[in-house]
Design a protein around this nucleic acid. Structure first.
Lengths: 137, 137
DNA sequence: GCTAACTTTGCAACCCGGTTGCACGAAAGA
DNA sequence: TCTTTCGTGCAACCGGGTTGCAAAGTTAGC
């Protein structure tokens, strides 16, 4: 994967600057969704605003998707490869109450629900909270 | 309902002050979940901190439950009558993208999902986004 | 190579929702 | 009544997110 990080940026029409490569690399290596402050503390000597704009750029170019897991801070995670057309993150997010990490569960099917009369459903967002495999020793 | 508002507070061991009665009345009258800033603007001449603490008290005493609908501000809505033992808000929340209101759908059953091996599920939070019955003309 | 135009970055400041400390006044208990 | 507790208002703070601006870096045209 790593050698293609730069290529991926170019493919998505994002100039592969040093910062962006580093951020994207972190996103690749980490199975957890990361927040802006996660990033800031992750490499200590970088500007919050730069990282913020990097994430924003990545989101606009559909490289990552935004997750609101109810922890108060927005998190981001890599999009699936087939995310190009449908940018909605059509999967369940799991929040571990022990390690506080947020994980995308790409393989779990989203259930269908029936809304009351005359309600129109556009997007279903599911957040599962509990204990992740690593913490559930 | 209205005559019992004061009684309900007493039952839940909350002193029925004027502020609290007013706030609870608003929560009863409004089918939508309300945020702190909703409340502040709703009766214009009240302190944000007082309303904040009122909501906090109500939540602690299990009169209302907290909803994070991903709009950036926490909302609150009345608990169901049988909420005493299990305070988790075990229902789907619907966010209308037109009128921006958040509605508790108490009658929709929460689907069950299968997590990967060794994940333990404690809470499932579902937010449906779309157009509500009133806006879906 | 050299300048002009554009992009990215760093810094500071701001915004807003949420939260807390503190002091005053009201209510409850002895 | 006196004391204690509780509720409220005010101001200030905190932290995540966001923006304006200028410096530094990059790209393109000549």
């Amino acid at each position: 994967m790593l050698p293609s990080i730069e290529l991926q940026l170019i493919n998505k029409k994002v100039k592969p600057t040093a910062m962006r490569l580093l951020v994207l690399e972190i996103l690749y290596k980490d199975r957890n969704a990361v927040s802006l402050s996660d990033l800031v503390s992750k490499f200590e000597r970088a500007e919050k605003s730069t990282l913020f704009r990097t994430l924003k750029t990545f989101e606009e170019k559909k490289i990552i998707h935004r997750i609101d897991d109810g922890t108060g801070s927005v998190k981001y995670a890599l999009c699936a490869d087939d995310c190009d057309d449908m940018h909605e993150d059509e999967h369940i997010h799991f929040v571990c109450t022990v390690c506080k990490n947020t994980i995308c569960l790409n393989n779990i099917k989203i259930p269908s629900i029936n809304l009351p009369n005359n309600f129109k459903l556009n997007d279903l967002q599911i957040i599962a909270k509990g204990i992740c495999d690593k913490c559930n020793s």
